[in-house]
Amino acid sequence: MNFPSKLIEDAVNEISRLPGIGKKTALRLALHLLKQPETHTDNLTEAIIKLRKETSYCSICHNISDQEICSICLGSRRDKGLICVVEDIPDVLAIENTSQYNGLYHVLGGVISPIQGIGPEELKIASLIERIDQPHSGDPVTEIILALPSTMEGDTTAFYITRKLKEKGIKVSTIARGIPIGGELEFTDEVTLGRSILTRINYSVD
Rank of each mutant, 00 (worst) to 15 (best):
residue 1 M to F: 13
residue 3 F to S: 12
residue 6 K to W: 02
residue 6 K to S: 14
residue 7 L to N: 14
residue 7 L to G: 12
residue 10 D to W: 11
residue 14 E to G: 02
residue 15 I to Q: 05
residue 17 R to M: 12
residue 17 R to K: 15
residue 17 R to A: 05
residue 17 R to D: 08
residue 18 L to Y: 02
residue 18 L to D: 11
residue 18 L to C: 07
residue 19 P to T: 15
residue 19 P to W: 13
residue 19 P to G: 14
residue 21 I to P: 02
residue 23 K to E: 09
residue 24 K to W: 13
residue 24 K to D: 11
residue 25 T to C: 06
residue 26 A to V: 05
residue 28 R to D: 04
residue 30 A to I: 03
residue 33 L to G: 09
residue 33 L to Q: 04
residue 34 L to C: 06
residue 35 K to C: 07
residue 37 P to A: 06
residue 38 E to C: 08
residue 39 T to L: 11
residue 44 L to H: 07
residue 46 E to P: 03
residue 47 A to E: 10
residue 49 I to K: 06
residue 49 I to Q: 10
residue 51 L to E: 12
residue 51 L to Y: 09
residue 53 K to N: 14
residue 56 S to K: 13
residue 56 S to I: 09
residue 57 Y to F: 14
residue 57 Y to M: 10
residue 59 S to R: 12
residue 61 C to W: 04
residue 61 C to T: 06
residue 62 H to A: 15
residue 63 N to E: 03
residue 65 S to Y: 00
residue 68 E to F: 03
residue 69 I to A: 08
residue 69 I to L: 08
residue 75 G to N: 14
residue 76 S to I: 15
residue 78 R to Q: 04
residue 80 K to N: 06
residue 81 G to W: 01
residue 85 V to Q: 07
residue 85 V to E: 05
residue 87 E to Y: 00
residue 87 E to K: 02
residue 87 E to L: 01
residue 88 D to F: 09
residue 88 D to C: 08
residue 89 I to K: 07
residue 89 I to N: 10
residue 92 V to R: 01
residue 94 A to V: 05
residue 94 A to T: 04
residue 96 E to H: 11
residue 97 N to D: 15
residue 97 N to P: 07
residue 98 T to M: 07
residue 102 N to V: 05
residue 103 G to P: 02
residue 104 L to Y: 09
residue 105 Y to P: 04
residue 105 Y to A: 06
residue 106 H to T: 00
residue 106 H to W: 07
residue 107 V to E: 01
residue 108 L to S: 04
residue 108 L to G: 02
residue 109 G to L: 00
residue 109 G to H: 00
residue 114 P to N: 03
residue 115 I to V: 09
residue 117 G to Y: 05
residue 119 G to C: 08
residue 122 E to N: 13
residue 123 L to V: 01
residue 123 L to W: 00
residue 130 E to W: 04
residue 131 R to D: 02
residue 132 I to C: 14
residue 132 I to S: 11
residue 133 D to N: 14
residue 134 Q to C: 10
residue 135 P to M: 01
residue 136 H to W: 11
residue 138 G to E: 09
residue 138 G to M: 11
residue 138 G to V: 06
residue 138 G to A: 15
residue 139 D to Y: 11
residue 140 P to V: 05
residue 140 P to S: 05
residue 146 L to G: 03
residue 147 A to F: 01
residue 148 L to R: 01
residue 152 M to C: 13
residue 152 M to G: 11
residue 153 E to W: 03
residue 154 G to S: 05
residue 155 D to A: 01
residue 156 T to H: 08
residue 158 A to H: 01
residue 158 A to L: 00
residue 159 F to V: 11
residue 162 T to V: 03
residue 163 R to I: 11
residue 164 K to V: 07
residue 165 L to C: 00
residue 166 K to M: 08
residue 167 E to P: 00
residue 171 K to N: 11
residue 173 S to H: 04
residue 175 I to P: 02
residue 176 A to L: 08
residue 178 G to T: 01
residue 179 I to T: 09
residue 182 G to I: 13
residue 184 E to D: 15
residue 185 L to A: 09
residue 188 T to G: 02
residue 189 D to T: 10
residue 189 D to P: 05
residue 190 E to C: 12
residue 190 E to H: 13
residue 193 L to H: 12
residue 194 G to Q: 02
residue 194 G to L: 02
residue 194 G to H: 01
residue 198 L to V: 15
residue 198 L to C: 09
residue 203 Y to I: 07
residue 204 S to H: 14
residue 205 V to Y: 02
residue 206 D to G: 11
